[in-house]
Amino acid sequence: MPERTVVIASRTGLHARPAKLFVQAAAAQEVPVRIRVGDGRPVPANSMLAVLALGAVHGTEVTLDAEGPGAEAALDSLAGLLARDLDAEEASGG
């Protein structure tokens, strides 16, 4: 199954606005995407509660996986999102 491993870049971790942006983007993908921390159980990336329960902070390594047509593009786009400091973008964007 295609996978991407990425380090959470947002300063405050995967919660509040960064979590919202990620869950929103995951829900907009054409394939279901899952996310896990290390060898943990993968959870649906479109579930805010499941994503928060990962407890992923700044610097945590997470792995995304997906299967089916468009999986590679979906993973690239979501991994790219997590690799950006979404808090900093929020601050500079006003």
């Binding site: 979590a19 919202k20 929103q24 959870v43 805010m48 509660l49």
Partner: peptide
Amino acid sequence: DAQSFMAADPGL
């Protein structure tokens, strides 16, 4: 906003 997403959570 994040709370709104919790209420709409497909898992919930």
